[in-house]
Amino acid sequence: MHALDWVIVAVYLTWMIWDGIRLTRRSGELEGYFLGGRSLPWWAVGLSVMATQLSAITLIGTTGQGYADGMRFLQFYYALPIAMIVLSATLVPFFHNAKVFTAYEFLERRFDVKTRAFTGLLFLLSRSMSLGVVMSAPAVFLSVVLGLSVTQTVLLSAVPTILYTMLGGVQAVAWTDVKQMVLIVFGLVAAVVVLVMSLPADVGFVDALTLAGATGRMRLFDFRFDHTEQYTFWSGTIAALFLFCSYFGTDQSQVQRYLTTPSVAQARSSLLMSAYWKIPLQALVLLVGILMFAFYTFASPPMLFDARHDRELRDGPRAAEYNALDARFAAAAAARTAAAREVTEARQRGEAERLDAARETFNARDADVRALHDDARTLVRQVTRQADYNDVNYVFPTFITTRLPPGLVGLMIAAIFAAAMSTIAGELSALSTTSVIDFYRRFVRPVATDAHYLFISKVATVFWGALASVVAVRAADLSSLIQVVNQFGSFFYGSILGVFILAVAVPRANGNGAFVGLLAGMGLVAATAAYTNTAFLWHNVIGAVAVVIVGYIVSLLWKQQSTGIRNQESGNRAAPGT
């Protein structure tokens, strides 16, 4: 990497630490540290929410997905604006007016302590493991680019983030998120501009989309109703609605953000920012992938985008087979380029029939290239014994490192760091808040000074940061454990939404009903995952509906003395006029 790029990355990392610490006010009090004194402006919180959600995996993986599969994945986000409206109208006023620190604290006020402790524990377990995975993916890529070990790149993103999250609390997290979000969007727009400029002189933006369209990569709506298919219009609008309501409405990493605003109206505005901008932002990420596909149609692509495995195969025992495959791949790619030229020419001359024929030929040539690429991947899987090997995550990194000019490489790497750090910081802050508020203060030391709780929360931030770093470095060894925990986490996403629905919409529901309902919901989702091949998005619907039905019935049969506030007191009074 060029010296200029190193300087850019170093300046970025230093700036984040300095800025994160500089911008903290009232971080010596509990409310200031955890909730920014409930004084952050809605636009900063809105950007922070989006930055936490946009991880480095999005930047690296989703661009690769756009390259290989096109815009189809965008359907996943179609329900997000509706989810934001639902949450703004329902859960947000409840949380805000209850003056809680965490979403789970609200559950004790409404139900009982066991429901709070169980949901809080599920959050801590699943989030700490998934944070390790979120840290590991960009670290692997950055280790290849920067020539450092994975341990070093994990530390490079984790240590600054732990430092400013620990010292500055949620304010530091939110304000650095704002800058990181700006950097990420700038990086994406720069990538689009460079990609369009890198196309051959006679190939324009519309030609690039036409080529993508000819191979089905511009399919944005799949109206088939197939419950086993992950991304269709129906799973994206119905099933994903439940997932987004659960993620944005009940996950502490998101809830904590909008609790930092001074009023319900501002909290709503911060959420509605995602309603307006999430789909266009995700389309921009996928567009980078589409344009990389057009770019590599004309600039001969490597058979494997992952240079490390490419070298391993070339030097390995099956080198002859691999090299022969590579020669066939180069010929197929050249044939595809010729077909692409024909499409472009026919389109530019406005010859409709010729264009139709050319599009069909191009699609067939692209299928040849894909088939050979699949053969190459199969070969890697056989040689390395990695059953799930895929080089899709290396497409964007390869483009950055081999095709961008010095300066821009540093900027894009800083953007990837930004995406990683904004997610890590948000999660760490939420993990620390839940540990202290829902467990330490609740069960260990109910009465202590703010200074004491702040000290414990700083220790908790370092603990969770260190644990996630270890998981990230050892992700390969721990993969089965991570998978189990993540699966466990996915069982509870829809189910926990069901608990919150019971809390705010079913006045008769009690703690016993909510707790038994939660267990029943998770059990049903686990059974669905084990015995059917229903796509995971639908698990959220199954979980939520099961919890509400079982929870309601159990609440009627198993009465409980009120241990917390009822929703008439906490929510109904608060909702009007806000």
Binding site: P81, I82, I85, S88, G213, G216, M218, L272, Y276
Partner: peptide
């Protein structure tokens, strides 16, 4: 409350416009 309702209606109108735009994009390029 009526202010919020107007905001929600605006979000839904923009949402429908975005989805329609994306659908037309698919029709044009596929």
């Amino acid at each position: 409350v009526s202010g919020m309702r107007a905001t929600y209606v605006r979000v839904i109108i923009v949402w429908l416009a975005v989805l329609t735009g994306l659908y037309l994009l698919q029709r044009y390029f596929s």
